[in-house]
Amino acid sequence: MSSLLQLEEVQLVGSQRDRLISLSLQVHRGERVALLGPSGAGKSSLMSVINGTLIPQQGTVLWRGRSLQQRNRRQRCEIGTLWQDLRLIEELSVGQNINAGVLGRRGLPWALANLLFTIGSEPCLQCLRQAGLEPQVLGSEGLDRPVKRLSGGQRQRVALARLFRQQPSLVLADEPLASLDPAIAAEVLDRLLERDADGSLAYGAEAVMVSLHRPDLIHRFDRVLALRDGRLLIDAPARAVTPGELQDLYAL
């Protein structure tokens, strides 16, 4: 498998929670990676370094063999993030939020037009369905429904739809199951990990990395990365991770 993302000796010095120490890892094409670790282990920091929100003080982050800092706007669109707090824009409608997923490929006139009316409602509806939300649920307002009037589960689907609309090559999902009931959580995870018959991810991405607090779900993934105190403790195929290792990971 060829390497999509490569981190070499990455060092991030921030607050207690924003800390990564000599971190090296690779993510390959076609992989579904589970990122485990107790709270404050550095999972969100790692995702922020990968999506370019945090810049490490040392080390290199290579995306398709090129330094992350050298990526242009179009290449930045290749990494999509499903944030833990979703980061939907409360003041906009469902359709406008989903369309925000393609801002990286559009100019100012398109962005302004999207604030006037929902552009391209068909792709938005398609992404919404792909995220598991039938448009009928939104009532007569449909895509024009303000995001602030959605339930927690519906908001999660809209964030997922925005991610699908972005069509990223690598998906980073930061604790996407944290505040969901078990049924919705299972469905969201299905959507993120679903594969086509040819083995590629159903929504077109080449790899996905999901951070979670549920060691019982690692069998759904190909590989497990586990962090503690900013250090990488486990980097192994999912089937090779033992219950003992997981216990050690969460032990105080």
Partner: peptide, 22 residues
């Protein structure tokens, strides 16, 4: 604004959607 930047949006569009819109 950071979230919009991570989507690949330009500084201008990140300001419009991420900072001004809210």
């Amino acid at each position: 604004q950071q979230a919009m930047g991570a989507l690949g949006a330009s500084a201008r569009l990140s300001w419009l959607y991420g900072l001004f819109t809210p």
